[in-house]
Structure formats: structure tokens, C-alpha cells
Design a protein around this nucleic acid. Structure first.
Lengths: 231, 231
DNA sequence: CATTATTGTCTCAATTTGTAACAATAATAA
DNA sequence: TTATTATTGTTACAAATTGAGACAATAATG
């Protein structure tokens, strides 16, 4: 048997967050002719760093380089081993599961990452065996295969826990944004309304924002400043 | 080739924290005749949950069941692939690396966990190929193999980040403890001195402690209350 | 019975956060 | 030109939290 290009038994899955229309969305793949939905994931080449494999996958799906990426948990329960599901996916794409791709039916431990990207920068790209890669609001996810719903839940939980400590909310916005836009991102992540003045004071006091010129939108009120994150 | 009992390419390592003499310590293994030191780790059986594999390993090393255990990161860089080191370990124990154990020389991705245990409950047990499993103060660790020092550093960092949010400090103490003992644990983890009155107020306000009878130690001063964590 | 060390609690100051008020716009309507 | 409107940035004050010390209450000892 020829050695596979990839490490067996090890996969990754990525929860790719974007922000649009005031809500959090994530990228979900739908597989050809199966009605099965899954997180974008992939495998690790035998001589590739784990993190690099994930970045590679993200580039392929989003065409973005320089992505904010964070590993958050590795899922390794036996309950996620469902070869029948993988078999359905592969066969729907005419792949012979007896041959070269047999290893894909084995048990996998998956390392899960979440990514934060600027929604507008992305043109989702399906991969070879999926017919779509699309944004779904967190509140309206389709039924996902295996334990992918659990993975999403843990991702959002981790993101919430990290939000204050790492001040990562800005990664979901364009380089320059208004305070109001930033607040809406935080509200979407935390799932609660925040007080405008307190939020503004806190963000400014954190000393991580750079203030730029004002943004004139032709609205009948004071124009807000634009900000970007210092680095 | 006979199938191995374990998943190839996947390992776990555990940073087992204990508290004694006012400082944090972790369990380190020393391998026979090699002068090599490493974290206690192991492999995952082909039909075993990842988390169960780690618990199994902990039971073998510490003879404790019911351990506070938390997964914190999965290390998968190529730079941690050093077959020569593993070969030294195995050969020093008379294991033929050409045979049944060849898979141990492959590249491994390791899932890292930290555990918090009551120091006094433990009688460290070396495994088959190590001649000791001993407590080392965090500040006086021997040089560790591969990226194990990095793993330890990330463990303590994660523990610090989680300390307030999860109030896990008590897992390093016996069921009942004084406020002073608990404070010393927190100080050891955070690496800073805490103010006695503020600490006491905070812990009591958190409403997670149950107060028990006083502890009389024959000291010439007021006897402190004993506390335990509610569950 | 005074002394000593430590504990549990209280007090007051300092800081941080919650809440509202208010002046400063940038367009629009009169 | 001049009100009107909606939103923004900042300030002001109240409420809550935390910092820092004071102090009385022990449990032994001399």
C-alpha cells in the first residue's frame, strides 16, 4: 500500500467566523448530492506543521492570507467515529473507498480551530468534494454531521471567554471601523446588549485603538471617528 | 505487520500539578540510563476515547481516580519530531525499534492536558520504561525532551487564565483546608502575593465555599475555620 | 493573667463601572 | 438662513467593587 500524503487518524476542523447584517455567521460546506453539512476541515501532510495545515485549508476556502486563527480544543471521542457518514460523502463523489482513500474511513481525532475574518474579504470556495461553502448565521445552522455542532458551540464559548482578555473583536471588521460597528461585533459575540458609553470608555482606556479621520456617511448627525487596532 | 493496539501519530502528555512546601510542583519522569526527562504521557488505544486514555495514564502514574483534568493545547509542529530521542529511550530499555515498536519513532501530534491533584494523595509510579516519576518544583525543572518545556509553560499560562473563571485552585488541596492554605495555592499559581483580607472577601463572596469546624493546631493564636468547595 | 501571633470582620479611601446628561455636530426641513 | 433630528464624544455623578489598614476575638504560652 502506498503511503498516504497525509497523517492518518488526524484531522482538523475550522469554525470560520464572519460578521454581517449585525450577526455572527460561520462558513459551512454542503456536500454533493448528500444533503450533509459540515465544518470546513482537512488533513495534515506528513511533514507539515499542524497549524500550517489549517492555514493552508483556510486560504483555499477563503482566499485570505494573514488570518486570525486560534486552536481551541481537540475532539477525540469514539462517538465521533461514524465511517458510514464518511463513506456516503466519498461515494457521492465517485471515490472508491476500497482504494487509495480507504484511510478516510478510519477513526479520526480532530483538532478544532476558530478563525475571525472580515466578511467582505471572503469569496467562499468549495473544495473538490463539496458543492458549496456558504455563510450561515449561527442561529440558523443546518444540521451538521458528526459532532460538528458541539465543535461550533465550544468555539463560540471559547471566543466569548477570550474576547476581553485578547480584544480580538476587531478581526471581524475591516481595518478601519467606527466605535459603533465594534460594539455591534461585541454584542453579537456575547449575545447581550452593551451600554454605549461604557463600551466606548473601556475600549479607549484599553489603549489598543488608533483614531483616524471621521467617517462622513451623509447622515443627519455628527460623523463618527474611524478607528483601527494598534499592533 | 500486525496492527498496533494504539493509534499511530497521536500521543498525549500531561502536566500534573501538585502543591507542597508553598510551591507548585509537577510530576516528571526520568528514563532508565539516559538522563532524559519528560512529561508523563502515553498513547490512545484504537477504540478508546482520547480523554479516557489520559485518565487511564494518570491513574497508572498516581493511583488516583477522580482527577481534575483539563485539555489545553495540541502540539503539532514538525520541530517536535526527533526520532533519535525516542530511539534512545527505547533502546536504553532493550526495545527493538525495528520490530513491534517501530511506530513509536514516527512523527507524533500530542494533545496536552493539565491535572490538579492533592499532593499527599499521590505515590508516583514510574512506568515500564522509566526509572522514576518524581515531583519537581516548577522553578527547578530538569531539562526536558522535545518541546515539553513549552508544554509546561503553556499549561501554567492556561491555569492562570482559568484560575479566577473556574475557581479550580482547591483541587490542589485536601478536601478541607484553611483560607490561608487556599491563598498560598493562588499565590503559587499566579506568582504574586495577594492581600489577605481582599482574598478572603473575594472567596467568601464567590459563594463556592462551605465553612466547617475550626482547625485547632495548638498554635498560640485564633484557630482558623476549615473550608471545602461546594459542588 | 498579660503576651503573642493569627484570624475574621469592619471601615474608609481609591478605583472602577453604571447611568444619565449634555454639548457638538452633519445633514435635512422649514 | 435657521430650526430640527439623530448620533456622537465627553463629562458628571452615583453605585459598586477593590485596596489598605484598623481592630477585636481568639488559642496557646510565659
Amino acid at each position: 500500500m502506498a503511503k498516504s500524503k497525509y497523517l492518518p487518524h488526524i484531522a482538523y476542523d475550522s469554525v470560520i467566523f464572519g460578521f454581517s447584517e449585525g450577526e455572527l455567521k460561520i462558513l459551512i460546506m454542503e456536500y454533493h448530492n448528500t444533503g450533509l453539512f459540515a465544518l470546513p476541515g482537512g488533513f495534515v501532510e506528513t511533514t507539515e506543521n499542524l497549524n500550517d495545515a489549517v492555514l493552508r485549508g483556510l486560504r483555499e476556502r477563503t482566499s485570505i492570507t494573514n488570518i486570525y486563527l486560534e486552536q481551541f480544543y481537540t475532539f477525540g471521542d469514539m462517538s465521533r467515529f461514524k465511517p458510514a457518514v464518511m463513506q456516503t460523502l466519498l461515494e457521492a463523489n465517485g471515490i472508491n473507498v476500497k482504494g487509495e482513500y480507504k484511510w478516510m474511513l478510519d477513526r479520526f481525532v480532530t483538532v478544532a480551530y476558530y478563525a475571525l475574518i472580515n466578511y467582505k474579504d471572503v469569496t467562499p470556495q468549495p473544495d473538490a468534494i463539496s458543492d458549496s461553502c456558504e455563510w450561515y448565521p449561527l442561529k440558523k445552522l443546518p444540521k451538521l454531521i458528526l459532532d460538528h455542532k458541539q465543535i461550533v458551540d465550544k468555539a463560540i464559548q471559547t471566543l466569548r471567554d477570550n474576547l476581553d482578555r485578547k480584544l480580538v473583536g476587531g478581526n471581524l471588521l475591516p481595518k478601519k471601523f467606527t466605535m459603533n460597528e465594534l460594539q455591534k461585533v461585541y454584542e453579537a459575540i456575547l449575545g447581550i446588549k452593551l451600554r454605549r458609553t461604557t463600551f466606548q470608555r473601556k475600549m479607549l482606556a484599553a489603549n489598543v485603538l488608533k483614531r483616524h479621520e471621521k467617517q462622513f456617511l451623509g447622515k443627519a448627525h455628527k460623523a463618527p471617528y474611524l478607528y483601527s487596532f494598534k499592533k
